[in-house]
Computed example of a mutant assay.
Amino acid sequence: MSTEPPAADEPVSAGELSARYDKFVVDLLGGIAYGELSGFERLSSDARYSPTLNDRAVLGKMAVAEFGHYEMVCGRLLAMGMDPELAMLPFQRMVDAFHERTRPADWHESLMKAYVVDAITEDFYAAIAERLDAETRGIIAKVRTSEEQTALLEGLLKKMLDEDPRLSSRLALWGRRMVGEALTQAQRIGDRHSFLVGLSPEGTQEEAAMEAVAIMAQLTRGHSRRMSRLGLTA
């Protein structure tokens, strides 16, 4: 039996493309599921910093929503015949290390982290979802933070900054650190799990690299708009 690799110009079979896409979707959903589970744990823990019971309830509501999203994605993985835990395990170490590096020192930093990191993560998955089948796109759309919760979080941050303008410079610096960490994390996960390569008809690293540059620019623009709404420099 020949062990030579196929010729460079040999077309990829439809079956191979389908298998590649299915693996890509499982990896993507596994990453999202663990991110949502981790988000639930993080927000539940960060709620202890809350200065008021109302503020604690806001983060608690967001944590409950994250857990609901986790269950939804796991349900989709089960429907695909996949074990959600096995799909999530490849992402556990990277996500846990990220949250360890970006542990907030207080309530103010906790809110800013949620505002920046959750939005960047969701924008990253949404950008990839544009290239997916309708059912997977629908699942990803459903796990996005609601506009109501985003408005609540933004309102808390604006109120906090209005009451203590001295926080502006510290939170602007913390926000810049968060966006840098979040973009690096998104790129690491995308590279390690060949996101974007799995969506390319040719499956080339060159095409994936161009897609990644475009997505990172899109994420940066979105972050700048959100920081501007708070009156902070991105």
Rank of each mutant, 00 (worst) to 15 (best):
P11Y: 04
E211R: 14
H193E: 06
L17Y: 03
E202M: 10
A14L: 13
M210V: 13
F195K: 00
V73I: 14
R192I: 03
G175H: 06
A19V: 03
I140Q: 00
V179Q: 03
L86F: 06
I139G: 01
L161W: 06
G180Y: 01
V25D: 00
V95N: 11
L132R: 00
T145I: 11
A151P: 07
R170F: 03
S13Y: 03
P201C: 02
V143Y: 04
R166G: 15
A14Q: 10
E66L: 08
T184F: 11
Q187E: 15
L199S: 00
F24D: 00
V116G: 05
S45A: 13
L171D: 03
L219Q: 03
E148A: 15
R192M: 09
E181Y: 09
K159H: 12
Q149F: 08
L167E: 08
V179P: 00
L59W: 01
R20D: 01
A8C: 09
A234L: 04
R221K: 14
V117E: 14
I140V: 10
S194N: 11
S146V: 05
L28T: 03
P11D: 04
S50K: 04
T204A: 04
D27N: 15
E41S: 08
K113I: 05
R48E: 11
Q149C: 04
L230C: 06
G198I: 00
M216P: 05
E10Q: 14
H223T: 08
C74Y: 06
P84I: 05
E207L: 09
P5C: 07
T145R: 13
D55C: 07
H69Q: 12
K113Q: 12
L17T: 04
S2P: 14
A119W: 09
A79T: 09
V64N: 11
E36G: 03
L43P: 02
H99G: 10
M82H: 11
I189Y: 01
R176T: 02
P104W: 13
T102K: 09
R48P: 02
P5L: 10
W174R: 15
V12G: 01
E206H: 11
G60R: 05
R20W: 01
A141C: 03
E181T: 00
L111W: 05
F124L: 11
E100C: 11
L43I: 10
V116Y: 07
L77G: 02
D55L: 04
D106S: 13
A33M: 07
P90F: 09
S50L: 09
V179G: 00
A127W: 02
D123Q: 14
G15T: 01
V64H: 13
D118I: 08
E66P: 08
R20H: 04
G75H: 06
Y21T: 00
A172P: 04
I128H: 12
R188Y: 09
L183C: 12
L43Q: 13
M94L: 14
E202G: 05
V64F: 14
L29A: 05
S224Q: 14
I140T: 01
L199Y: 01
V116S: 07
Q185Y: 10
P104G: 12
L232Y: 02
E10A: 15
L53P: 03
T136K: 00
Q187Y: 10
H223P: 05
R192T: 08
D106Q: 09
T233D: 15
E71Y: 07
E207K: 14
V58C: 07
R229L: 12
D133M: 02
R20L: 04
G190F: 01
L78T: 14
D83H: 08
